[in-house]
Amino acid sequence: MSMRRQGFAAAAAFAVFSSAAFADSPNLGRLATPEEIAAWDIGVGPDGAGLPPGGGAPKQGEAIFAAKCAACHGEKGAGKPNDTLVGGRGTLVGDQAPVKTVGSFWPYATTIFDYVRRAMPLNEPKSLTSDEVYAVVAYILQLNGVIDENEVINAQTLPKIQMPNREGFVIFARGK
């Protein structure tokens, strides 16, 4: 038998035997229900698509941040032990080391909402209510000088916020 035929025969035998092995598998797992999928289908786009009802102001966010965020991000988002959230404006150009924070780097306020909502606090992701997320995001934006301390953000106002680095990204065409 030629090498090519031996290879084909081996592949066919593997397919037959592995199919039989899979048929005898413990049948672990199941399809997710529509309710389970909906619970995780919480993405928010740069245009605000997917933002939930609710709202919050920096003052409300300050208390939530102190209780649930400051242990990782420091007082007023100054950093340590995790990422610094405040400052860094003007450091993305020139010879100095860039400081990538919410105020210096992130292009969309809605992206901050999306990230906080699905990933924070680190030890209890997805535990904040929509109002708490809006409030924490408002507080972080206020600390970065993006909004004032009396501004309330919600699904209508958040997408309209112009982040300082909105135009700082270069769009390029991938290979043709």
Rank of each mutant, 00 (worst) to 15 (best):
A13N: 12
R166G: 01
T129Q: 10
A71F: 11
M120T: 04
K80H: 10
I42M: 07
A13S: 12
A70K: 03
A32G: 14
A173D: 15
D83G: 08
D83I: 06
A57R: 15
G175W: 04
A173F: 08
Q6S: 11
L143W: 02
L128P: 02
L28T: 07
N144S: 05
V44T: 13
L31V: 07
A71N: 10
A11V: 15
G168M: 06
I140D: 00
E35N: 13
E149C: 02
A135Y: 02
R118Y: 02
R117K: 10
R4M: 13
A173L: 13
G87T: 09
L28W: 09
F113L: 04
G94T: 10
I147D: 00
K126H: 05
Y134R: 13
Q60M: 05
A21K: 01
S25T: 05
Y134W: 06
I161Q: 02
G50R: 08
S104P: 01
P125F: 03
D83L: 15
R117Q: 08
I140R: 01
Y108W: 10
W40E: 15
S104A: 12
K76I: 03
C69R: 00
A57L: 04
E75M: 04
N123F: 10
R5K: 12
F65L: 01
D95P: 03
T33V: 06
G55Q: 08
A10T: 14
G87C: 13
I147G: 01
F65E: 00
A49H: 14
R30H: 15
I140V: 14
T33C: 07
C69Y: 00
G55N: 13
L128H: 01
P81N: 11
S18A: 05
P107T: 11
T129N: 08
R174N: 07
S18P: 00
P52Q: 05
V99Q: 06
P26N: 11
F113D: 07
Y134Q: 02
Q142V: 03
L143V: 04
D47V: 07
D131K: 06
A173S: 06
Q96T: 10
C69Q: 02
Q156I: 09
D24K: 12
F65Y: 13
G87M: 03
I161A: 02
G7W: 13
F172A: 14
V133R: 00
P125W: 06
E62T: 03
Y115N: 11
M120L: 08
C72W: 01
V16M: 12
Y108V: 00
A66Y: 00
S25R: 07
C72M: 13
K80Q: 08
T91L: 01
P53E: 13
R174T: 07
Q162S: 07
G29N: 05
I171W: 12
I140Q: 03
V99I: 15
F172W: 09
L143T: 01
L85A: 11
K100M: 12
E124N: 14
E149M: 06
K160M: 15
P107I: 05
E149Y: 07
E167G: 07
L51P: 02
L122K: 11
G79L: 02
G103T: 01
P125E: 15
A63N: 04
A71Y: 13
P159M: 12
I140H: 00
D148N: 13
G43S: 15
R174A: 08
E167S: 10
G48A: 10
